[in-house]
Amino acid sequence: MPKLILRFDDRELTECAVGTHPVSIGRLPDNLLVIDNPAVSGRHARVYKEGNHYVLEDLKSTNGTFVNDKPVARHTLLEGDIIVVGKHNLVFTLKGGEQTEDHKQEEALPEIGGTMFLDTEKQKNLLSGLDRGRPSQVYDAVVPKTAIPTAQGRIGTIKVVAGNTGQSEYVLAAVTTMIGKADTAQIRLKGWFKPQVAAAIARKGEGFTITPMGGKVSVNGEKVSGRRELISGDMIEVGGLTLEFTLS
């Protein structure tokens, strides 16, 4: 597989394989090949496959992209081309040493019954653009669809306006907050005939929803039957409690 070898002062810093996906080059951490130097634009250039060739394209960078000392906007790369980006050199080579594409692929990614697993070191190489500058987040490159409370900026709060429960205010820190008599409920109902779980407040993306789970629930005087989105200032009545919801 062709690759780009990043050099600075004749020192080899890293290399990046050029496969079917474009290699973005720039200062910003979301580039596949990150060059953290003020002379490099945030999104400086990219290299991609076009037919049987590999093309270098300057992305209107401030200081320009040079190949073999000539400024280029677009250039079809040849074996041994030296790309200059700021003070860094990138050497384009079609061969990874004497290895053919297949051999290199096998070495980089051991096959395990069809499914391959990347250990942390190899992940770092392949995701070099993703994790640069935030190494602890290598594993967190995949953003969960099910929201994690801390991942969202907004805070939901429940203020107890009327009724008998443990606290006068609850911060909705959990993904799911249960309201009921059960020990596991965060907002605890007291009394003989109260349901174990009357309702649940769930975080969904940026906001919160309330769903009746075994008790009567109303919001601003309207009975809730399914899932209902909560808006800041909503007054919730459930299990004898009156609760005010605030999103801040």
Partner: peptide, 29 residues
């Protein structure tokens, strides 16, 4: 998925359509 292609989609390197055709779909993180 905790896979390379999903990470690439989340990072905006490829779109969902491309991820379904990627040869790297079997690489797990």
């Amino acid at each position: 998925d905790h896979s390379l292609v999903e990470a690439q989609v989340q990072a905006g390197l490829i779109d969902r359509e491309q991820s379904l055709k990627s040869e790297q779909q079997n690489i797990l993180l």
